[in-house]
Write a protein that binds this DNA or RNA. Sequence first.
DNA 1: CAAATAATTCGACAATCATCAAACTATTCG
DNA 2: CGAATAGTTTGATGATTGTCGAATTATTTG
Lengths: 105, 105
Amino acid sequence: MDEALKIFQALSDSTRLAVFQCIRGCGGETAYDTETGCCDATEPGAVALCDVKCQVPCSPSTLTHHLNVLRDAGIIETDRRGRQVYVQINGAALAKVASFLVNTK
Amino acid sequence: MDEALKIFQALSDSTRLAVFQCIRGCGGETAYDTETGCCDATEPGAVALCDVKCQVPCSPSTLTHHLNVLRDAGIIETDRRGRQVYVQINGAALAKVASFLVNTK
DNA sequence: CAAATAATTCGACAATCATCAAACTATTCG
DNA sequence: CGAATAGTTTGATGATTGTCGAATTATTTG
């Protein structure tokens, strides 16, 4: 399945996997960091890019690049709200690949 | 998890994914091809490299390279029997990554 | 032992790709 | 409007990596 290949490629870079994990973990309800002021997710399951950047050390352009790869693979979805772009995980795509992995034969 | 990263890297190449699928599909009971004589798996769940090579078009050295990557990632296991090396899938490793993918938060 | 089959090792080469800086667009706010 | 914040676009560059051919090792068999 070609869809699975794209997802594997998207998750095959350490920085990109960190971004992925950040979006997943930070999108929850309790992930606010009072020290840095980062990760002030306004709703469950969505994070602003600027908050991701706080936790994954890379330049803005690199982050944009990685997000494009993740989005093209169908792993995440983005929508802009005012100045910020919010990101969230597409669970369905992940579930499909997970079943592909486990599926015998 | 660093283990997951390695597995994603291993499956992020189209040729390697083809090898993976070949081992999985061909390792079954009924995959013998009377035309080419390929894929004469002697036991369920194991395939000889020469049979994989029949189905995935690449040079022997390339195949060896890909198998090393897959083995280092823990996806497959190999053992030599006489002239041939047999390969089989390590289901446990795949199951672990599958649950990593689905796992929310 | 010699020949044949199966697989590995080694180098080299081409292509892909992650990264960044700089310049730019988009949006809010004073 | 002008300043500030948030992201994107566009090269360029350095590193990684997939591929192969040639030489080599391992094993069986005549």
